[in-house]
Design a protein around this nucleic acid. Structure first.
Lengths: 231, 231
DNA sequence: TCAAAAGTGTTCAAGTTACACCCATGT
DNA sequence: ACATGGGTGTAACTTGAACACTTTTGA
């Protein structure tokens, strides 16, 4: 009994990955969508995805797709969920694994928007998507909201240098409410994971707001001592 | 261009599910393991699993396996993660999706322990497992610990009727520390999701401890009003 | 000079932690 | 009668929520 043939009685299935790509501009959470290039549903709005090759790790398929479509090398990406119902795709039996990823819109200019007909959509203006992609987006949003509370992943969506009002607008968007400016400041500053810079950003006010940077090393150091990020 | 043949250029892959089955006795978190019946690694300790049939939903494959091996119909089960590296299984390219599930040990007597050589292992006495099953167990443990804090899933592991000391022992085991008896009581009782019964359980003390039941309806009602379970 | 956003401190309520003694009962 | 685990209350502390005024500067 050869090992190689051990599993040969079992039937194989098509496997794909889909990527939910979030961005954040000054006020709004955004989602990157593409016009589908293959049938069925050719020309309709869709997440980006790809079939998984038998010779590549599932995760590599996602990295490959994200690089190809956003042009970004080091992209924040996490597994979300799989979608495995028999009839989820009228094109055939396909099990899809979804990754959500967070990108800085300002770094992703390299997206081949023209050739792929890619477009950023504000989160409350997303058009109907193919298959169960609406569900995937909803699941990704839920996960992002939950995760943003307990881990400093919001910084993945902001520019390297950001102002506290900008950061607050991110949490306002995530929570769909207006946090108290003073309490927010107090809390985030007291964590000691931000570095205040001497520069100001004047793009949203005359007075200008100080720029800050997220200190990932400091965060790791604190975390190893039991610190928990919570907003 | 027929829809059915749209995806036919792409290669299929073997897909399986694996189940991490947790139980809890009086003091210990336990894991149900089985001796593997097929090569490679025949006879070694393993999670239960199965290949996914092209005609069944992924989730149904997990339900099928859990029913078959534990004899329990309505089992608590949630998706955990997928494991998709090319070389994770020397028997062939197999992508596995793992579900973790919580069972009441007292309800699972029907497990066909003899024919399957199944055995409950205390969580700190788990033997080496095949493939990446050790990793799966670790991931499931992490998820269970995180989840047990914010959702009342601990009750899935306890008998229908349980004492507060018993419940506390569950959280002690999860957190690996000794919570304060009085504060624990105060907190869990004040949530208003437990029903106190008139019976006592004397199996662990002479005085006996009152039995309680989890009130799922009440919990749902409170949750819809914004209540958050946190221990 | 004024409109618009940025920055700052204090008070109060609520929740969490720490902690010590009595109760019931089987042996 | 005593050892063992079960049950209860209170005070100190920490954390989160609410809230108003001053500063800067471009137009």
């Amino acid at each position: 009994m050869s090992v190689v043939h051990t599993y040969s009685d079992n039937e194989k299935i098509l496997v794909s990955i889909d990527c939910i790509i979030f961005g954040f501009d000054q006020n709004q959470l955004n989602l990157l969508l593409f016009k589908r290039k293959i049938d069925p549903f050719k020309g309709e709005w869709s997440l980006v995805g790809s079939f998984v090759n038998p010779e590549e790790d599932v995760q590599n398929a996602a990295v490959r797709v994200l690089q190809e479509y956003t042009g970004i090398d080091e992209i924040f990406m996490e597994p979300l969920a799989w979608y495995g119902d028999v009839d989820r795709d009228p094109g055939g039996r396909v099990i899809s694994m979804a990754y959500y990823s967070l990108v800085r819109i300002d770094e992703s200019k390299v997206i081949k928007a023209d050739s792929y007909q890619a477009k950023w959509f504000a989160i409350d203006e997303i058009p109907p998507l193919i298959l169960d992609h609406d569900q995937m987006v909803q699941d990704a949003l839920d996960k992002l909201r939950r995760k943003a509370r307990y881990e400093p992943i919001g910084f993945e969506l902001l520019p390297e240098k950001f102002t506290l009002p900008h950061l607050k607008r991110f949490y306002d968007a995530i929570y769909q409410k207006d946090l108290d400016r003073r309490n927010f400041r107090k809390k985030i500053i007291s964590m000691g994971i931000l570095t205040k810079l001497d520069e100001k950003d004047k793009s949203t006010s005359k007075k200008g707001a100080y720029l800050y940077q997220f200190d990932a090393d400091k965060y790791e150091e604190l975390r190893s001592k039991g610190f928990n990020f919570v907003i």
